[in-house]
Amino acid sequence: MHIILEKLKERERELRKRKEREEQEVERVRQKARRKDAVVSYQALLTERIKDPKASWTESKPKLEKDPLGRATNPELEPADMEKLFREHVKVLNERCAREFRSLLAEVITPEAAAQASEDGKTLLNSWSTAKKLLRPDPRYEKMPRRERESLWQRYAEDMDRRQRAASEQKEEKTNIDDPSRRPAGSSKSSPSVRRSHGRK
């Protein structure tokens, strides 16, 4: 009888432990779902409220916390989580602005426009102030953070200059091939008489 009671108690303990594990697993799944919902809601809030790539976390945090839906005060998200999501959002905004600014550069600084120089020799490729005058009226110019505008222009100008030089060299090379008179000295083929003299040796 004593043995039977012990087995029953052991069985009860096992069932209780199994139930606890199952409850913990259910709670873990629920918590994961709640956190996911909190992240999605907070990201939606960021999309609604934060549209400036120059926005700072310190200035934006109080504004976000005023959200009537409480998406910035959700207990499922730690303050560090919210700041990380904010910075990721701003990074995406910056990348989008950079893409749009590069599109603007391509639209304004075409090879034809870049070939035009002012009296003092300034072009859209060698003078930021000259390029800026044409870029500034477009909204994409203002959206781009000021500290990054010139560096993006400079990279674009260097890339265009490099491509133009490469195209010019290829054109020159093709011209030399098509026109034997323009080949450098020593590059002409051996004359028939030279080939014949070699053959008699």
Rank of each mutant, 00 (worst) to 15 (best):
P139E: 14
T130W: 04
P111R: 06
T123R: 07
V108D: 06
E100Y: 04
V92D: 05
L135E: 05
H89E: 01
S118H: 11
E88F: 10
K133N: 10
S127P: 00
E112F: 14
K84I: 03
L135D: 05
L105K: 03
T130P: 00
N126Y: 10
R102W: 02
P137T: 06
A115C: 07
E112C: 08
S118R: 13
E83P: 10
E76I: 07
P111E: 06
L135V: 03
P137S: 10
A98D: 12
K122T: 12
R140E: 00
N126E: 02
A98Y: 09
F101Y: 15
L125S: 01
E100Q: 13
W128I: 04
A80T: 13
N94Q: 15
M82N: 07
L135Q: 03
R87D: 11
E119R: 13
E78S: 11
E88A: 11
L105P: 05
L105I: 06
L134Q: 10
E88S: 12
N94R: 15
D138Y: 03
A131T: 04
R96C: 06
T110D: 04
A131D: 02
E95G: 06
C97Y: 01
A131Y: 03
E112H: 12
T123S: 05
T130M: 02
A131F: 03
F101G: 01
L93S: 14
G121T: 04
P139G: 06
S103H: 11
K122I: 03
R99G: 08
L124Y: 02
N94T: 08
R136K: 15
T123E: 02
T110F: 03
A98T: 14
N94Y: 10
E107P: 08
D81R: 07
K132Q: 15
K132E: 09
C97P: 05
T123Q: 01
V90L: 11
D81C: 07
K84W: 08
R96P: 01
S103E: 13
L85W: 12
E88H: 12
D81M: 08
R87T: 14
A115R: 07
V108T: 14
S103N: 14
P137Y: 09
A98C: 10
L125V: 00
L135H: 00
K133F: 03
V92M: 04
P79Q: 12
S118P: 01
E76Y: 09
F86N: 06
R102E: 15
L124C: 02
A98S: 15
E76D: 15
D81H: 12
K133R: 15
L85D: 03
K91N: 09
D138W: 02
L85R: 09
L93R: 13
Q116G: 06
A115L: 04
G121Q: 10
L104T: 02
A106N: 09
E76T: 06
K122G: 01
A106V: 00
E78K: 15
L104M: 05
N94K: 14
P75D: 09
K132F: 08
E95H: 04
L105A: 08
K122W: 06
S127E: 00
M82P: 08
E119F: 11
V108C: 11
D81A: 10
E107Q: 11
N126D: 15
S127L: 00
A98V: 09
E107N: 13
S127N: 08
D138P: 01
C97T: 08
L85P: 03
F101W: 02
D81V: 08
T110Q: 02
C97R: 00
